[in-house]
Nucleic acid binder design. Structure first.
Lengths: 198, 198
DNA sequence: GCTCGATGTTGACAGTGGTAAGATTCACGC
DNA sequence: GCGTGAATCTTACCACTGTCAACATCGAGC
């Protein structure tokens, strides 16, 4: 049995999975190239044959994260009739994703890849995720007709993104740390902004 | 002339200022203990006589940041009559502070000090800043009387915090990068949530 | 005026991202 | 079948980081 062939076979994928696992178990800032390589059973320089540098690995991990987020958001989109309700639940899905995968979420919005233009695949995945929110906002026509749409998208995104980051940093209490608690809190927060109308 | 006395005199303060300056000029993640020490003109181990570890230095920097933020927010509080307007402008001040001091803002919400309980002074400063928003929310009674107040605070905080983080990460376009642009954007976003009422 | 604690320095260690040079193996043309 | 070049992986370095231990220097109070 070739227990350890010289060539790994699918090291790129293995490195990404190792990074996700290390992030989940030890935190996003424990994801170092060397540790990822160790976890995948290769030498510390092997990753450089698949990623030009550490940032590129993070970008790849973030890319799969954005794809999962886009998936979660559009699943909600397909399952709800009322445009207003659909927007609300898309926001809840955003927050729940962050709370369910806090370390990956942190990686997705880590500073080194804030400008995603050098990573086209990441850029596309992030745009897809954002497009989900944009569709939900456009359909529900948040605000009166006088406000321009980009502002509505920015406001909606900011609200759920703020909830997500504050919750996963523990700033909004421990009840919100669980996906159920996060869903309840974000639903309540969203309704707080709309309750004055109903 | 004693160009370099053996003892610095006020090294603790000098280290904090050096950290702020390095963050401003080179980015928050360039703030290393050794670089800060170098910038202050002392050896790389000198900081350990004033801070137990790197995190404690970050906590000290974040503390002055939170004090400045609390100051900015309560300055707005004192200058505006209408409770509703006061809440809105307190939120704008939060975002403008972040955009005006992006690297310090990042330090203030960096993960290593997300739990501020080991740093009582930082904890108090952060609580002061938050208290500003809480007062503004309580006075304006965001939402109808049926929503509980902590939710209102969380929602308001999440909105402005989300705006702040998204803007300083460049996710909301370059127009928002300037303090004026950020003020305009955040005012519009806040009004987007209220316009449906007026 | 001496001593002791506070403050500073030098030197070491393990860990990191990154590069260079060499080893191994795969794929493909003959 | 077989060689040869490219892709992959390894070992060995470099500079940098946080942190600690040992030692040097100074100031404040007895």
């Amino acid at each position: 049995m070739p227990s350890k062939p010289y060539h790994h076979g699918d090291l790129r994928r293995a490195l990404i999975e190792a990074a996700v696992e290390i992030a989940r178990e030890h935190g996003a800032d424990e994801v170092s190239l060397r540790r990822v390589a160790r976890h995948a059973g290769v030498s510390h320089a092997a990753p450089y044959h698949h990623f030009p540098d550490r940032t590129a690995l993070i970008a790849a991990v973030a890319e799969v994260g954005f794809r999962a987020l886009a998936n979660d958001v559009s699943a909600v989109e397909r399952s709800i009739e009322s445009p207003r309700e659909r927007l609300h639940e898309a926001g809840v899905a955003y927050v729940v994703f962050a709370v369910s995968n806090p370390e990956q979420f942190r990686l997705m919005f880590s500073r080194e890849i804030a400008d995603s233009t050098p990573y086209p695949d990441l850029h596309a995945a992030a745009a897809d995720a954002r497009a989900g929110l944009e569709r939900a906002v456009a359909a529900s026509r948040l605000g009166s007709g006088t406000t321009s749409e980009p502002i509505d998208v920015a406001a909606a995104w900011a609200l759920v993104h703020g909830l997500a980051t504050l919750i996963i940093d523990g700033q909004l209490g421990n009840e919100a740390a669980s996906p159920e608690g996060a869903a309840a809190l974000s639903r309540a927060a969203i309704h707080a902004f709309w309750s004055q109308r109903s």
